[in-house]
Design a protein around this nucleic acid. Structure first.
Lengths: 189, 189
DNA sequence: GGTGAGCATTGCTCTAAGGCAACGTTTTTA
DNA sequence: TAAAAACGTTGCCTTAGAGCAATGCTCACC
């Protein structure tokens, strides 16, 4: 159950077995079903989630009822509704497992306690933030000024499994195009 | 020259005068002209910039020669081409002062040395990353699925000075609309 | 394992907004 | 300070892609 988490941590930092065990002991397993909402729109998010199996989507619904997805996380990745997690305000977005999933959950208190007490874990958190920042930027550049076809090509290049793993509707809401447009583009390659 | 930087740091963390002085001594003044390119497309970015006066734009140019702006920073803000700064790879974007500016520049080596040696500065860096991440996310949600008018309303609401400070062309390239569309929208309020 | 809800696909129509061009204005440069 | 280059604005035309609707498929749920 914890082998993927362990190898994730070891890939991020030098760490001894004892500390590694201690970190893992802070993560509790949680099984979720397809399309289960783990963090609701008005919730204050107080956990960080490691995906042992399955897939998490972060999305919101605007005033006209249209979904907008901003992030998908897969096996071996950490994920949370970060703005809410950091500032302890309502998430204003949903965190959803779009497949039957096995999550490893660490509470905010334990997470920050690890960041404080274990310098290696502080390093990991810094790295998560840096990577998140870079990913968001790449996405902004990747989508800005591109037409629908170019966006689809971009996602195929940068996340080859994405379109295979995610429903047409969700993928479209991530790319900022309509499901029918995405469907038409896919049928032409 | 350093008063704005000092008040920025004091607003972010508890710090004594000695440490504050030491931090400031790592920042060197740099004067730049309007539209000066500070970090070029192929440069590896090895400085962090604090804006004492003026304005920085981060943008790139795609294969068809179209500009896409992803971030504008104003007085009292820190800014760099972060992906390049972190990973020491070519920036693939431009960092430009769009007005005559006074920057306070810290080298990457000094920056990371401060992060290591002064816990308060480490905190500031963590906070920069967190805020950057949150800002990027808000922008993704803020623009996704919005039409041109809604985007303009969004920027007026969230950054009221933006359209007054930034040229029509640059603002359009930030909002992901054409300069003529932005011009038309502005004329109708 | 049968039924109902939601999703994917595809054709048709319509509109927001981009491209282009012309003109006036502002900024840059020599 | 005069010429040249870049930018802002506006009109006209064109088009990518959204919206809607009909059909067939898939999957969740009893």
């Amino acid at each position: 159950m914890y082998s993927l988490l362990k190898s994730y941590i070891k890939s991020q930092t030098e760490i001894n077995e004892e500390d590694l065990q201690f970190i893992c002991s802070c993560f509790k397993p949680k099984l979720t079903s397809r399309n289960e909402i783990v963090v609701d729109f008005n919730d204050i998010c107080d956990s960080y989630y490691f995906i042992n199996k399955g897939c998490i989507r972060l999305f919101t619904i605007n005033t006209e009822g249209v979904e907008s997805s901003r992030y998908f996380a897969f096996e071996g990745m950490l994920c949370t509704a970060l703005p809410s997690f950091i500032d302890q305000k309502p998430a204003c977005e949903y965190l959803q497992t779009i497949e039957k999933s096995e999550l490893l959950v660490i509470s905010r208190a334990d997470f920050y306690s690890l960041v404080e007490k274990l310098p290696q874990f502080g390093e990991i958190y810094k790295r998560i933030l840096e990577l998140g920042f870079i990913t968001a930027q790449k996405r902004i550049y990747g989508f800005q000024g591109f037409d629908a076809l170019e966006k689809v090509r971009w996602i195929i290049k940068h996340q080859p499994h994405f379109l295979l793993r995610v429903s047409n509707k969700m993928a479209a809401s991530y790319l900022g195009i309509s499901p029918s447009t995405l469907s038409r583009i896919k049928s032409k390659l």
